[in-house]
């Protein structure tokens, strides 16, 4: 028998569409790839390309209409206990009366028994997770008092609290300034020594420098080694929408309205060495 661990994620001819008839408007079409143990995979692609849908399929929040998804060799729902999921920090309501430790403890909820409070073992594990993301000093702070980068760390700590084998992140760098982003990336790099990481991002700059592999997703998925990502790959993926969205040659990069259109082109150039 083969003793190597099963792939962290294996997608086999996965189809998915929202709407009344499953095949009418597919969001994902014949997606087939796998993520090996200790991989660091980025999923990039235009908005509406199916990135978040793919994450939800891996978490078992959605079921594929055709094909098979297996996570850590199990069905997505059965693998949940060993998968840490980090949502975008902006999705969390900060007015909730809870401390950072309360939030991180949520990651232990599936392991804990009934009752009003978490036991000391769970608290120790939660504090340990905060230590791992170097945010232990935030434990008693209310969520509302944290910056975006700190919140993202707290959410990563929550995902780590149950000691997962696989970490799924949805746009971890969205709404975080460049400096914070860099330390976040270092952190993920460090965590990658012990666990497999899959992150969704439309921040393509991130891609070539830090990831091991990149899945370009626009209904269909193509997986590349990170070094291979160049202008041609990106323009193939973005071809139609890019022309459509890019309406103005002097539109600033910071304008969120044309972010989708401008960003890939710029990155594509820099990735091939022609950029500034």
């Amino acid at each position: 028998m083969n003793s190597s661990p099963p792939p962290a994620i294996a997608l086999d001819d996965v189809w998915f569409g929202y709407g009344p008839s499953p095949m009418s408007v597919p969001v994902l079409e014949a997606v087939t790839f796998s993520v090996e143990d200790r991989d660091f995979l980025g999923i990039i692609g235009p908005n509406g390309g199916g990135k978040t849908t793919l994450l939800k399929l891996c978490l078992g929040l959605l079921r594929p209409q055709r094909g098979r998804v297996s996570v850590l060799g199990l069905s997505p729902t059965r693998a949940r206990r060993r998968v840490g999921y980090v949502p975008q920090h902006a999705q969390i309501d900060t007015s909730v009366p809870a401390s950072v430790l309360d939030i991180v403890l949520m990651g232990r909820l599936g392991l804990s028994a009934w009752g009003a409070w978490y036991g000391s073992a769970h608290r120790a594990a939660a504090l340990d997770a905060l230590e791992r993301v170097r945010a232990a000093e935030l434990a008693s702070r209310p969520l509302a008092s944290l910056s975006g980068g700190q919140r993202q760390r707290v959410l990563i700590a929550r995902a780590l609290a149950a000691d997962p084998k696989l970490l799924l992140l949805d746009e971890p760098t969205a709404g975080i300034d460049a400096h914070m982003e860099e330390s976040l990336v270092d952190l993920l790099h460090e965590l990658n020594r012990e666990l497999t990481i899959v992150m969704v991002s439309h921040d393509v700059a991130f891609v070539s420098t830090h990831l091991k592999r990149v899945a370009c997703l626009n209904r269909r998925a193509v997986v590349h080694r990170a070094e291979e990502i160049g202008a041609d790959v990106i323009s193939t993926m973005y071809h139609q929408p890019m022309r459509g969205i890019r309406h103005d040659s002097d539109c600033p990069l910071t304008d969120p309205g044309c972010h989708e259109g401008c960003r890939p082109a710029e990155i594509g150039e820099s990735a091939t060495g022609k950029g500034p």
Binding site: R80, G107, L109, A116
Partner: peptide, 22 residues
């Protein structure tokens, strides 16, 4: 006394609560 953790989790983040098997 029995459910505080669970109710609080749902208040904080429904999706994460669901992923925790709630």
């Amino acid at each position: 006394l029995l459910m505080h953790k669970r109710i609080l989790a749902v208040c904080i983040d429904e999706q994460q609560a669901q992923l925790q098997g709630i």
